[in-house]
Simulated assay, not measured.
Amino acid sequence: MTRTADHRLPRRRRRRLTVALAVLLTAGGAGGATAAWSARQGGGQTAPEHPIRLDTVKVTKTDLSTDRTLPGTLGYGPLRALKGTGPGVLTKLPSPGATAVRGKPLYWVNDQPVTVFLGDTPFFRALDKPGLRGRDVTVLADNLRALGYDIGPTTDRAPTRHAPGGTEFTVELGAALKRWQRDTGQEATGTLTPGRALVLPGPVRVNTVTAAPGDPAEGEVLTYTTTAKSVAVSVDAAEVGALHTGQSVTITLPDSREIPGTVASVAGAVQGGSADDQTAQAGPPTVAVTVTPRHAGDVKGLDSASVQVRFSATDRKGVLAVPVTALLALREGGYALQRPDSTLVPVETGVFADGMVEVSGTGVNEGMTVVTAS
C-alpha cells in the first residue's frame, strides 16, 4: 500500500529532530558536509505538503565563535631552585618577594655581595687572563657594558671543532672589571671567580628562602620565579591543536572582571592519560598552556588566584547561520534547509557554536525563511 505525504512528514520531522540533537552533541567542530543530489532532481527536492503548522526562522548574518572556558591558576610561573657556588658561608639572605635585578647583590657570602648578572652561561672558572675566550666571558662583557662600563673593543667568534666560541677576555675588559669591583665595595683584583657573581636568565622574584645564615654557600639558597605573572591552564590534548602562541584569550578574575590575555606557550609534552603508568595523572591526557595578562596592571595586587580562561578556537565573522534544528538530514547524505513551501535547498555546513550553524550554498541568502523543528 502506498503511503500518502501526510504519513511521511512526521518521519521527516523526527529525522530533523534527531539530526539537531546529534549536531548539538558534536557542536564546536566544523562540518563540511555537502548535500548529495541526483541528476534527475536537478538541484531541488520538494517535501510533501502537509497540514501541520510550520515553525520557521530566518537565515541571519552573524559572528560565530567556538569558545571554550577552562579553569586556570594565576601565579608567578614554575619554581626554580638557585644553588650557590664557591666556598664560604652565607651571611645575609633576601626576603621572599624580593626582586633580583642586574648589577644588584642578591645575597652575601663571607659578608661579600654576590651580584646578579643576566645571561645564559654561569661562571664556572676564574676570569683573569687576557686571551681567555668563552660564553662566560661574553656574559661578563655584556653585563659590564649594560651597567655603563667601557670595556673597549671586543672580538666574538663562533665555536669550532678545535676552539671555543664567545668573547675574548681583554686587558680593557679586565680594567672595566676592576672599576666595577671598586664601585661595589669589593677588592679590585680584576679577577672574577665563581661565587662572586651569579647568572640568571632574567629578572626574577624570590619565592622562598631555603637556606639560613651560617649555611655553606655551596647548596640550595632559594627558589625563584619570573617577575611576570601568568596563568597555568591544562588543556585536553585532543583540543590543544586549536591553540597557538600569540592567540588572544579572555581571563576572568575572581572579582568577575574580564581582562585580555595572550597564549605565551603551549607545551610539547602530554601529561597523564597512560593507563599503564601508575604514576600518571588521573583523567584524560592534557597539555600545559601558559597564558599571560596583556597588561600587568590588570592583576596588580594578586599574587595567586583561581581564574577562568576563555579561548576562541574558531572565529567566523559575518557568516550566514541558522539554528541547528533547521538542518534536515537527507537519505542521500548531507544536509538541506526546507522552505515553507516544502522546497529543499542543499547547504554546506561550517562552524557550529551556541546552537547555531554556519550554512552556505546556492540559493541561501540572508533573511530567507526556513522551517525549524519546534
Rank of each mutant, 00 (worst) to 15 (best):
G28H: 02
L337C: 07
P153C: 10
D156H: 12
K317E: 12
Q278H: 15
Q281N: 09
Q41V: 05
F352S: 04
G75Q: 06
E172C: 04
D120W: 07
V59R: 03
T154H: 07
R12H: 11
G166D: 01
A98V: 02
L106P: 09
V347S: 05
A264L: 10
R12M: 12
T69F: 04
L198F: 07
G88W: 10
E358K: 02
D156R: 14
L118Q: 13
A232D: 14
V23T: 12
V116A: 12
T292K: 11
T85D: 07
P71G: 09
A264S: 11
L24R: 09
F169H: 03
A27K: 05
I259W: 09
L320A: 04
D128W: 07
L327V: 10
G261Q: 04
T292C: 07
T34Q: 05
L243W: 03
A163G: 09
L198A: 11
T4P: 15
N207Q: 15
V263S: 07
R11P: 01
N365G: 15
A35H: 00
L17Q: 13
P203V: 10
G165T: 01
T46P: 00
A197L: 03
L177W: 02
E239T: 09
A146W: 01
R310E: 03
Y76H: 10
S248W: 02
T160R: 11
K61M: 14
H295W: 12
T193Y: 14
L144F: 06
M368Q: 11
K92C: 06
P213Q: 05
G174W: 00
Y335I: 00
P94N: 06
A305E: 08
P130H: 14
D142P: 03
G246K: 08
H7E: 15
R294F: 06
A163K: 15
A288E: 14
A20I: 05
T184Y: 00
G97M: 11
P284Y: 06
E218T: 12
G31C: 02
V291Y: 14
R135M: 11
S360R: 11
E332H: 04
G131L: 13
V364M: 05
Q308E: 14
A141V: 01
P194E: 13
R16E: 12
T226S: 15
G202T: 13
E348C: 01
V240N: 02
T290Q: 10
T325N: 14
G283P: 06
L118K: 09
A188N: 07
L79K: 11
G152M: 14
P113K: 09
G148A: 06
R14A: 15
D298I: 10
P194D: 13
V209A: 01
T121F: 07
T170R: 06
D341Y: 14
T325L: 09
G268Q: 10
N365V: 15
A35S: 03
P159V: 03
L328S: 10
F169D: 06
